[in-house]
Simulated scan of single mutants.
Amino acid sequence: MSKAIEALQKRMQAAVDALDFEEARRCRDQINLLRGGAAPEAVERADLSGIERQQPGAMGLGTSQQRMTPPQGWKPPPKPDPMTKRRSSRSAGKRGQ
């Protein structure tokens, strides 16, 4: 199997040198299938056109959180006026003692 991987790596490097990145991508995906345990015959027949690589940060702690984007035209609400805001309940309890 390592001979098949070496041959694919050489094909991939030749494709990169020729700036044929689609062929290099196919070779890379075939190498990954071989390293995953697929048979070399099955790798040659595999249709890799629909395979998408996972985006960086898609796994791990806290990395899969989506960013919220507000709708078009949305404005944040006005901040409350601190001079008219009621005091906290802690300060009110101290006055009563």
Rank of each mutant, 00 (worst) to 15 (best):
K3L: 10
D17C: 05
Q9R: 12
M1P: 04
T63P: 00
A58S: 05
G73R: 04
V43H: 00
G73S: 06
A14W: 01
L34S: 00
Q97L: 08
R87V: 14
R67Q: 06
P82A: 14
K10N: 13
E52Q: 13
A7Q: 13
Q9C: 11
R53K: 01
K79G: 04
R45F: 06
Q30L: 15
R28N: 15
G96V: 10
Q54C: 03
S88E: 11
I5W: 00
I5E: 03
N32C: 12
E22I: 09
V43G: 00
Q55L: 09
K10V: 15
F21A: 12
E52D: 05
S2H: 08
A4T: 07
R28A: 12
S2K: 11
S2E: 10
G57V: 00
Q65P: 00
R53N: 06
L34M: 09
R95Y: 10
S49L: 05
Q55R: 10
R86H: 07
R26T: 15
D47V: 07
P82H: 13
P76W: 06
Q54M: 04
R26M: 12
D17R: 13
A7R: 09
L33G: 00
P82L: 14
Q65I: 06
E41K: 10
R95D: 12
D47I: 05
D20W: 08
R28H: 15
A18L: 15
P80H: 09
Q72T: 08
R90F: 13
K85N: 08
R86W: 05
E23M: 15
T63F: 02
C27L: 02
R28C: 13
L33R: 11
A24M: 07
R45Q: 13
P76N: 11
I31N: 00
D81P: 00
A14I: 07
A24Q: 10
S88V: 08
P56L: 02
S2P: 03
D20C: 08
R87F: 12
A42G: 06
G93E: 10
A92Y: 11
Q54K: 07
V16D: 12
D81Q: 14
F21D: 14
G73L: 02
P56Q: 02
T84E: 13
P71S: 06
R35G: 12
K10W: 12
G62S: 01
R35A: 12
S88D: 15
G73C: 03
R67P: 00
S88G: 14
G62H: 01
P40C: 05
A4G: 05
Q97T: 03
Q9G: 02
M1Y: 03
K75W: 03
M83A: 13
M1R: 08
P71K: 03
C27A: 15
K79A: 11
S2C: 04
D20Q: 13
R25M: 14
A18S: 15
K85R: 15
G93P: 04
S64K: 02
A42I: 01
M83C: 02
M68C: 02
D81W: 11
I31T: 01
G50E: 12
E41Y: 03
C27V: 07
A4R: 09
E6V: 02
A39I: 10
I51N: 01
K85T: 15
D17N: 14
D81T: 14
C27H: 08
S89V: 07
M59R: 05
P71Q: 07
Q97G: 07
P70M: 04
A46Q: 11
R28Y: 14
L33D: 00
K75H: 08
E22F: 11
E41R: 08
